[in-house]
Design a protein around this nucleic acid. Structure first.
Length: 876
DNA sequence: AATAGTCAAA
DNA sequence: TAGCGGTTGACTATTT
């Protein structure tokens, strides 16, 4: 079969695709329309042309040899839109995935590369196809070379052959450059001869052949004006022709034979399609993308029954496999180690009894990269092995680069990075009831694969962190924090089991009484906890008016019931029943269930890679939502006690940290002033919004101002504010507008933040945390509005999260430095909870506020309040 | 096993 | 013109 070379003008096709398609974007907010269009064209060509050789040529740099001839060449061109520029790096990745060669050459344009290669290939008897959106390329057409120029859309092309050109213009191919020289080209800023367009150019060339012969016999040109113009612009015409002429002898370093195209690797293509969210193209590949792991390459490894120093290196990739979601006191399935010495699987028993392994694990100078550092450290800690020297956690790196990546499976993260030699844990171990531990050999293979994948991905993550200016955030904030959190989780918090049980007993008695009362009022017994049954009783049997409906029936939520409280005695009882029921099931029984048998401690886990704002979350149990607002619930905190006698619980919280952060990043004079004066911020807000003096602020004004401030912190809408204040949406909107008029700096910040998100696709916090907001350009009002509020809110909440994280690290260091016994136990978003011996109280009173307030330096002071007592309840 | 409704916290 | 209207985790009931 004859050789066939396809040459694509990369920049030109990308431009065409970009302008032909609406702005699409993937979940990271990277625009993808140009890449998408390019891919469609690419796939069509591969199918229709079946090329044996292929190349995509790109323009390199800003200037070319043509600029020497004519400084204004391509002058006045609109800057490439940033939405397009950002797509080029992905385009290159895409071509690599397709195994298609790409090439660019300093000083030359894509045209010249294509021209040179096209001529070479034609000489070697190739059939050549050129694809571009730029008609200049048509000058290359010969019997061997066909030039496809895209028409309006992206799928339609005109195929320029010598015959087609003859028919279209009545000129031969060689005259294309003469035509261009006469006409000029506004897009390349080639001047040509003023007043000469396509029609005149063709007419002249038909008569005279070339520009040169035309200029020699200008006398014969008919038309006085035209003659004058030609006379005046002789040199310009020659130069224009020169500029338009494609260089077919560019000093390229590739030869036609280098361009061999042997098809693409579906796996790689699927990977990049997934990264770009090209779901329809994935379908086209005939792959749902699910079963791409069928034929994994074997990775050789050694099973180490005996571990020796020769197996350890200075840089290691380590996987401590713990299948139990809750890694406290959980079983370890095995350990994999990958480093320059080799790939190893270490059976758990072998590792646990090995002094050598323990020495390696605890050695700070033996650096380890892991997936889920807290899991590895805590699991080993429960087995008596100290794990130190972890300086890279992929779960955190992935989260920092993009917090919307919340996958806890290494395979999923690897696949997003285009690495496929790995299976998901679910595929290997099964899920739910079907979860089982396969033979050690299978576990070993899987672990080594996962560990090997880490090694393959590390560079790429570091590169990405650097590009995002997030390396510091990763190395100096999140990685050290994970170690602080590990200590907190492993230490746990002491709980007074008897206190909880007594409270539970008390609640049970109360609940029985309320239950009886409810049944009496309802005239029958039913399950009060069933919204469905309760709905029937309230809205059908008792005929109360329905306020709100849910998907499945009547809403019985607290805000609905509160509106009905006047109408029937039963409502109060139900609300009270709910309140106590919540305490009993979630807090009494829930907490009792997770108390560690032997120590009476609770070990929560902090999820460090989940929230979109950078906050932590707490699970199993959630210790960040222990009741406080209502006294009955607050009592639960009496059960949280110090772990030693004569110790106390010490709690410190930031006062108004989010609003202080707002004052700082918005640089709002009035807000800054309020905080510098240490004013009551809600009262101050009320004064400014209602234009009254401090004395004139009523409690209602302050309440409303507080609600607005709350809204700012949590990014609620006018609807949200109207709900919390019980006013109309319109009034709420007016209220917000007045707030923004009162704080012009805040208003400007809000607007800039949204603009910024639209412009860059993401927002950032004080310490460079990112959140991508692709939906900010959505035409869907809801999605867009949410993204806009998020753009305003995330830098505030996220920066506050950054600050307390920094404070935690500083605090841990300070306690160590001061040789104190106090322990950090919990973080509750703006609050740190410690336990400490009584005789450290005075010192804590000094250093805790000091460290927390100095965590970062803002334009306003940070303020920390603290308290302590014999239980968490008493630390108020 | 998954989903819906509810409610606790910052 | 509405649209839908902060997050996270855990519980119970209910459906699949």
């Amino acid at each position: 079969m004859a050789n066939k070379l396809v040459l694509i003008d990369g920049n030109s096709i990308a431009y065409r695709a970009f302008f032909a398609l609406p702005l699409l974007s993937n979940e990271k907010g990277i625009h993808t329309n140009a890449i998408y269009g390019f891919t469609m064209i690419l796939m069509r060509i591969l199918e229709e042309e079946q090329p044996t050789h292929m190349l995509v040529a790109f323009d390199a740099g800003k200037t070319t040899f043509r600029h020497k001839t004519y400084g204004e060449y391509k002058g006045g061109r609109q800057k490439t839109p940033p939405e397009l520029s950002e797509q080029f790096s992905f385009l290159r990745e895409l071509l690599d995935a397709f195994n298609i060669k790409r090439y660019e050459l300093e000083n030359y344009e894509a045209d010249d590369i294509i021209g040179t290669l096209a001529r070479q290939a034609a000489k070697e008897d190739f059939e050549v196809k050129v694809i571009s959106g730029d008609k200049d390329l048509t000058q290359l057409a010969t019997e061997k070379i066909t030039v496809d120029i895209t028409k309006k859309g992206i799928t339609d092309v005109d195929s320029y052959t010598p015959a087609f050109i003859e028919e279209k213009y009545g000129l031969n191919v060689n005259q294309i450059i003469d035509m261009k020289g006469l006409m000029g080209d506004s897009s390349d800023n080639i001047p040509g001869v003023p007043g000469v367009g396509e029609k005149t150019a063709i007419k002249l060339l038909k008569e005279f052949g070339t520009i040169e012969t035309l200029l020699e016999s200008i006398d014969k040109v008919s038309g006085k004006k035209l003659k004058e113009k030609l006379e005046e612009n002789k040199e310009q015409a020659i130069m224009s022709k020169d500029l338009a002429t494609i260089m077919t002898e560019a000093p390229i370093e590739v030869t036609v034979s280098d361009l061999l195209y042997e098809g693409y690797d579906t796996k790689n293509v699927i990977a990049i399609f997934k990264e770009l969210s090209f779901n329809s193209l994935l379908d086209k590949l005939g792959e749902s993308g699910e079963d791409v792991t069928e034929d994994l390459e074997e990775i050789s490894f050694e099973v180490l029954e005996e571990i020796k120093e020769e197996h350890f290196a200075n840089d290691n990739f380590l996987m401590v496999e713990v299948l139990d979601e809750n890694y406290h006191k959980a079983e370890i399935q095995g350990i994999a180690l990958v480093n320059e010495k080799g790939n190893y699987f270490i059976p758990t028993e072998a590792a646990l009894k090995s002094d050598q392994f323990a020495a390696f694990a605890s050695d700070l100078t033996k650096k380890k990269s892991v997936f889920d550092a807290k899991r590895a450290i805590v699991a080993l800690k429960w087995q008596g092995i100290e794990l130190n020297g972890i300086d890279f956690d992929f779960i955190i790196a992935s989260y920092i680069v993009n917090p919307s990546e919340t996958s806890t499976d290494l395979a999923e993260i690897a696949r997003k990075k285009g690495y496929f030699q790995i299976e998901t844990d679910e595929a290997v171990y099964g899920k739910g009831a079907k979860r089982s531990i396969p033979d050690q050999e299978i576990v070993a293979k899987h672990l080594v694969r996962k560990t090997f994948a880490m090694q393959e991905m590390k560079e790429s993550f570091i590169h990405e962190l650097k590009d995002n200016e997030q390396l510091k955030l990763f190395e100096e904030l999140e990685m050290p924090l994970s170690l602080v959190l590990t200590e907190m989780e492993a230490l746990g918090i002491q709980v007074d089991r008897n206190r909880l049980e007594d409270m539970g007993e008390d609640l049970s008695n109360k609940l029985v009484k309320i239950e009886e009362k409810i049944y009496e009022l309802a005239g029958e017994t039913f399950n009060i906890n069933s919204p469905k049954q309760l709905g029937v009783i309230l809205f059908e049997k008792l005929g109360l008016p329905t306020v709100k409906k849910t998907k499945t029936g009547y809403s019985t939520s607290a805000d609905v019931l509160e509106k009905l409280a006047e109408k029937h005695e039963i409502i109060q009882q139900i609300l009270h029943y709910r309140q106590l029921g919540k305490l009993k099931s979630t807090y009494i029984e829930g907490l009792l269930k997770v108390i560690h048998r032997d120590t009476n401690k609770i070990h929560t886990r902090f999820n460090q890679a989940l929230t979109q704002t950078g906050r932590l979350s707490s699970i199993d149990p959630n210790l960040q939502n222990i009741p406080i607002r209502l006294e009955e619930g607050r009592k639960i905190r009496e059960a949280f006690i110090p772990s030693k006698e004569d110790w106390i619980i010490f709690a410190a919280d930031y006062s108004q940290i989010e609003l202080r952060v707002l004052a700082h990043i918005a640089n709002d004079e009035k807000l800054i002033e309020a905080f510098n004066e240490n004013a009551d911020i809600h009262t101050k807000t009320a004064m400014d919004v209602f234009h009254v003096s401090k004395e004139e602020v009523t409690s209602n004004m302050r309440r409303q101002a507080k609600a607005v401030n709350f809204g700012i912190v949590y990014g609620i809408s006018d609807y949200g504010l109207s709900q919390s204040l019980g006013i109309t949406r319109k009034d709420a909107k007016t209220f917000i507008d007045r707030y923004l008029e009162s704080f012009p700096g805040v208003k400007a910040y809000m607007e800039e933040s949204v603009m910024d998100a639209k412009d860059k696709g993401y927002v950032t916090t004080l310490l460079h945390r990112r959140r991508y907001l692709p939906e900010i350009t959505s035409s869907n009002f809801n999605l867009r509005s949410f993204a806009e509020r998020t753009a305003m809110n995330t830098p505030i909440q996220g920066s506050a999260a950054d600050i307390i994280k920094k404070a935690m690290i500083d605090m841990a260091a300070k306690l160590e430095e001061e040789n104190m016994q106090a322990n950090l136990l919990l973080q509750v978003h703006d609050e740190l909870v410690f336990e400490a011996p009584k005789d450290e109280i005075e010192k804590l009173k000094k250093i805790v506020p000091e460290v927390m307030e100095q965590a970062v330096d803002l334009k306003v002071p940070l303020k920390v309040d603290y308290s302590y007592g014999s239980t968490w309840y008493d630390a108020k």
